[in-house]
Each structure stands twice: as C-alpha cells, then as structure tokens.
Design a protein around this nucleic acid. Sequence first.
DNA 1: ATTCCATTTCGTATTTTTGCGAAATAACGA
DNA 2: TCGTTATTTCGCAAAAATACGAAATGGAAT
Lengths: 105, 105
Amino acid sequence: MSNKIELSEDVRLLASYSKALSHPTRLYILKKLSEMNSCCYSGDLVDEVPVGRSTLSQHLKELKYAGLIQGETEPPYIKYCLNRENWEKAKQLYAGLFQIDQTIK
Amino acid sequence: MSNKIELSEDVRLLASYSKALSHPTRLYILKKLSEMNSCCYSGDLVDEVPVGRSTLSQHLKELKYAGLIQGETEPPYIKYCLNRENWEKAKQLYAGLFQIDQTIK
DNA sequence: ATTCCATTTCGTATTTTTGCGAAATAACGA
DNA sequence: TCGTTATTTCGCAAAAATACGAAATGGAAT
C-alpha cells in the first residue's frame, strides 16, 4: 500500500497562480496593473511587450482564466484590470509560503 | 518603429521562480522544506508525493536548476535542502510584486 | 450597407513539460 | 567480487505552452 498524500487545494491554487506568473510577458502585465493601481488597454500593451497582438491576446486570456485579471469592453477598446479579490488571495498564499509577516495597515 | 520594452532581469528571474513553483508536487516539496527548516530525503518524499520515483527525480532536478534547492549526497541517500539565499531572493521578489511590507524581526 | 478599428479566434508549427518503466550509476556490505 | 539499496538518466509518448499570421468578430462611423 501507499502513503501518497492528496495535495491540498491551497497548494493547487498557488501552483495555478504561479503558472500564470511564470511567463515574463504575463508578469510584466500584472506588475504594471498592480503598480498603476488602475486599468490599461490591450492596445497600449502591445506596443510595450515583445510579442505580437494575437500572442498578447493569448496571455491576457490565460491571466483571465487564472482569475488574476478581468476585462471590460469599452468599444472599440478593451480595458483590463486586476481582479483585486484573487490578487489578494494570491498575495496571502505567497506570504504564507514565504512566511512573510504582514503588518496591518 | 516599435516601442517594445526589454523585460527586466528581475521580471525574468521572478518568472523563472514562478515556473519552478507552478507544479503542485514541486510546491509541496518547497513548502515542506521551508516549513521544517531542515532537509529531507528523496526516499521519504516519494512515499508522500503522488508521482513515481523517476518523475520525482525530474522535479527535484528542476528545483535545483531553478536554484531553489540543493542536494548533498549522504550515501546511500541524497539529502535535499532549501537554497536559503535564493529562497530569500524569491521572497523579496514576490514581496515586491505584491507590495508586501516586510517588518524587520 | 460598407468600411474601419481593436481585438480575438483559428490553424498550424515548434518547443517544453510531464510522466512512466527500464536500464544505468554509485556506494556499501557480505 | 557480487548483490543490495537509493537514486538518476535514458528513451519514449502524450499533453500543454508559446508564437505567428490570416481570418473572424463586434461596434462605430461614413
């Protein structure tokens, strides 16, 4: 018989967030969104980031799928923002992993 | 002409750490190593983690390649420990991304 | 209705990741 | 020397990730 462990939901979720963070382009986008504390347009990003339009779109889709961003359509543009709730969840999970004390503001 | 940005070294490094963290099995190993604050043996891990020996070995190799763990041979076992220096570096990078205030102990 | 614009989806190719079992390795003990 | 034990490497297959250009979509303006 085996003593194999069932990996916890938190471990799975953190792995999934980490996968979202594991590409430089996606990380750049998240960093930017979190730092500027507002939203940005896909069309602006494509000028900054070193990938083509369709590839950028794929990365945005993945970030959306991971739950880290959300997009509002604002014709003819699409405005992307952080999903604050899940961003906070990710923050907690990473803080837990690295045992970072978080001071209450 | 293009305004494409050169992605920073920190972004690349954080992406690479994130890739290492992006698999539940690897995350489980790192979590365990960081929590128990000492080292562990590959042979113990294989009983806990839901993958075979050779697959576990691959994951350990990847974690080593990412610089997050190191292995000392202690025949007939191999003892794996966190690479504290790079673990700390990763901690800083994630803290920066999530803007976590780190209190000095 | 047609054109224009920003963006996504599709089709495709290449590379990387994940996983396993079998074979190889390295150190030790009989 | 010959097993035994712990672990890794090899060979392979299947699945997922990355990237691009061409075509499709959905509104808005003419």
